[in-house]
Design a protein around this nucleic acid. Structure first.
Length: 492
RNA sequence: GGGGGGUUGGGGUAACCUGGCAUCCUACCAGCUUUGGGAGCUGGUGAUCCGCGUUCAAAUCGCGGACCCCCCA
């Protein structure tokens, strides 16, 4: 059994009262990561975080493959010249790029970028691979890490190296490409809610907040316990910008030449970890959904008196049986007291605990305890595996309900910018309001609002629900006739 | 880019101003007693970021360096 390096006696941390303190304690105390690696902004992922990320990849990758994406692995380095082909893209990303300038003692004639995202690597190859309409659609994904020189870092939320998936797709028509972004939106929000219990709000971002080099950006906001939004991924319609810049052309069925229309989709696996930890966790630590929990069940023997040996033996037997049943289980037969073990596994987010003592041994039962409610249930040993699976999905349902209710409670209507400011300061979450969308999609008003509210950003318009301003509604900032209903929130 | 703070056993700390025996908590190891919500006792391992300087003597003072954290643009 792993030892607790960061064990603490009391966790009088309140996720709701002081989220940042809670988060900074829990991510280390739960054993997700070790932050002592001596390069700023980079962390070491311990087995818990590594397995949890694998679990998240294992949810997303099959969805992408079912949608026709094939896996690839591109080089981590991108030559400077590729990187500078698309003008807006360069301007957007270059300030954050890590450059490799030497090999051994030799200075490179052209520096190599550590990919901050891989469009400029993929399109280099798309130009070679895409020749005819029959080559399209071409849909790839890669699971990898990317590098960005960030100034303020926070594990799983903003890092200089982070884990994600990126898809790069090319299509013969704009319609197909836009259809792909809709599919991406659907996959992302469904996987996060159905399997991880994290409700996602899908926005179309304003023009001034889109991906550098893209035409349209759709993004996924998750409400964090402090009322701020965490964007956990995005998908972008790139039009022909990148295919034109990189000279990617195909011969149409009628013989003419055309540039493909492309998209890219970036599910932020790192940020999904942050979202799962933050949305579900409580003051005793992580609460991980059964489907992705690296340890799904902890068996704890209550071994006292003459029964001690028999109880431990029974626990090992039960754990072995559950393992055969495909459940990820540990039998904690260490010398620690039961109370210590409860706290230990609760901090690590293990969704279910099985307690076996003299009483259970005699009755042929097991006591099953849920991590979220700490409710106990006595079940017959013969049905244990089934009962655990049932409790696992019951727990997920509870987590979903709670998260959804929390999100609903954090959408507030506002008619003036003072109201917007007040809501963002008092309870946070989304503020639904009216907006003009005039010059550059309302950029000037958005900037003014952000300054006025000290950080409130226009997240965009809802994708899954068409909303029209009420008759006569005015822009919350400039007072001109409103064109759209937007949501404003503070963000990470 | 600018500013500030910091680095002492695995983690958290005290001592620093005013130089001299490095404190406490926790974790870890061994043994015994324990085990239904963070057990107890006894014993043990383990640290002053690096370099140079001042000094009889440096965690402490000076100079240089490395690294980390925070704040602001």
């Amino acid at each position: 059994m792993a030892s607790t390096m960061m064990a603490q006696r009391e966790f009088d941390l309140d996720k709701r009262k002081n989220f940042s303190e809670w988060y900074n304690t829990i991510i280390y105390a739960s054993g997700l990561i070790d932050g002592r690696y001596n390069v700023a902004g980079f962390v070491v992922h311990k087995p818990l975080a590594t397995r949890l990320m694998r679990g998240i990849y294992a949810l997303l990758e099959p969805e992408l493959e079912a949608d026709g994406h094939e896996p690839v692995a591109f080089p981590t380095v991108i030559p400077k010249e590729n990187f500078e082909i698309e003008k807006e893209h360069v301007a957007g990303f270059v300030p954050q790029v890590f450059w490799v300038t030497k090999g051994g003692g030799e200075e490179f004639a052209r520096p190599l970028a550590l990919r901050p995202t891989s469009e400029t690597a993929f399109y280099q190859m798309f130009a070679l691979w895409i020749k005819a309409h029959s080559d399209l659609p071409m849909k790839f994904y890669q699971s990898c890490t990317v590098f960005r020189y960030e100034h303020e870092t926070l594990p799983f939320i903003r890092g200089r190296e982070f884990h994600w998936i990126e898809t790069h797709d090319a299509f013969a028509t704009a319609k197909e490409a836009l259809g792909q972004t809709a599919t991406d939106n659907e996959i992302f929000s469904r996987v996060l809610f159905d399997h991880l219990g994290v409700p996602v709000t899908v926005f179309k971002r304003p023009q001034w907040d889109k991906f550098p080099g893209g035409e349209e950006t759709f993004a996924y906001d998750v409400l964090m316990p402090d009322g701020k939004m965490l964007q956990c991924g995005s998908t972008h319609y790139l039009g022909q910008n990148f295919t034109k810049a990189f000279g990617v052309k195909f011969t149409k069925a009628d013989g003419g030449e055309e540039f493909p229309f492309s998209t890219c989709f970036g599910p932020g696996v790192w940020r999904i970890v942050a979202a799962v930890a933050s949305v579900h966790g409580d003051n005793k630590g992580l609460i991980l959904p059964f489907s992705v929990a690296p340890v799904q069940v902890a068996v704890v023997p209550i071994a006292k008196g003459e029964n001690a040996e028999a109880v431990v033996k029974e626990c090992r037997k039960i754990a072995a049986g559950l393992k055969k049943d495909g459940i990820r289980v540990v039998c904690d037969d260490s010398d620690k007291s039961p109370g210590f073990k409860y706290n230990y596994w609760e901090m690590r987010g293990v969704p279910l605990r099985v307690e076996i003592g003299g009483r259970e041994l005699e009755a042929g039962t097991a006591t099953v305890v849920r991590r979220d409610t700490r409710e106990k249930k006595v079940v017959p040993l013969a049905k244990l595996a089934d009962e655990l699976r049932k409790e696992g999905s019951a727990m997920l349902a509870t987590l979903k309900d709670a998260a959804e209710a929390d999100l609903k409670a954090h959408v507030t209507e506002a008619k003036t910018k003072e109201e917007v400011k007040n809501v963002l300061e008092s309870k946070g979450g989304f503020v639904r309001t009216h907006f003009c969308s005039t010059a550059r999609d309302g950029e000037a008003c958005a900037k003014e609002l952000q300054a006025f509210t000290i950080g409130g950003k226009v997240r965009g318009t809802l994708v899954n629900k068409e909303e029209k301003p009420a008759a006569g509604a005015k822009c919350v900032v400039c007072g001109h006739s409103a064109k759209t209903v937007v949501y404003v929130a503070k963000q990470y």
